[in-house]
Design a protein around this nucleic acid. Structure first.
Lengths: 113, 113
DNA sequence: TCAACATATTAAAACATTACAATATGTAAA
DNA sequence: TTTACATATTGTAATGTTTTAATATGTTGA
């Protein structure tokens, strides 16, 4: 009949999932990848070109985005093409754009995170 | 007529702002604060209670959220009450909920970030 | 098969964030 | 003003993330 101190509630688990979901959008490289992929399916090489990050960086972040359900990939000859799985991400970005528009300078200057 | 290698483009600046914006939602404590504040204005003490994090933890994250334009505060007697500035955050959370619903398990297991 | 190219993986260093504990500041009531 | 309570700030240790460079794997066409 023991009880451990730190049992995670279902709510905590939910919260962690959401936090992780947003974490996907909280890194400049990942954000750029998502934004670019919203326009069209692209190979890793094209992404490297478009984003200006190193191949391993892009590849690593893609793995992360894929694992977290943002993107999917398919082999196409010697290329691997990535695409956004869920179009609703576009809506989130659009909303963020609107909100940020009123607070851009404030957010940019934030040094606490 | 020199040119520095790493001049930040306007686009990069934009990207960083968005990344930072989402960073606000990418931490469990901050996420909980925002979620709870969407229901009603609350004092720091009430938030500590509601969220189950330490006072300094909550206070610090509130400072971050305030600085980044998510919340505003007002003094009310010996309490400081915090509230969400922009209701549109609610919509973002709702959308995230829908998207995550299809990928929850996947996201939860993500170990790459 | 081998060579050439595309992508993925990995380990380690560099860097950023968070948690914690202690302390400071602010506010109100006595 | 002093006391008690509420909130903010700060330094530091603990953690987590990102970058980099090196290497591995996979694919195609010669």
């Amino acid at each position: 009949m023991e009880r451990v101190e730190s049992i995670e509630t279902a709510d905590d688990v939910q919260t962690e999932i959401y936090a992780k979901f947003f974490h996907g959008l909280s890194n400049p490289t990942r954000f750029k990848i998502i934004k670019v992929l919203l326009d069209k399916e692209m190979s890793v090489g094209q992404l490297v070109e478009a984003i200006g990050a190193s191949q391993s960086q892009v590849s690593n972040q893609l793995a992360c985005l894929k694992w977290c359900g943002y993107v999917a990939s398919r082999q196409d000859g010697k290329y691997v093409l990535y695409r956004i799985i869920d179009e609703r991400v576009r809506t989130i970005l659009q909303l963020a754009k609107e909100i940020v528009a009123d607070n851009a300078e404030h957010i940019r200057c934030c040094t606490r995170m």
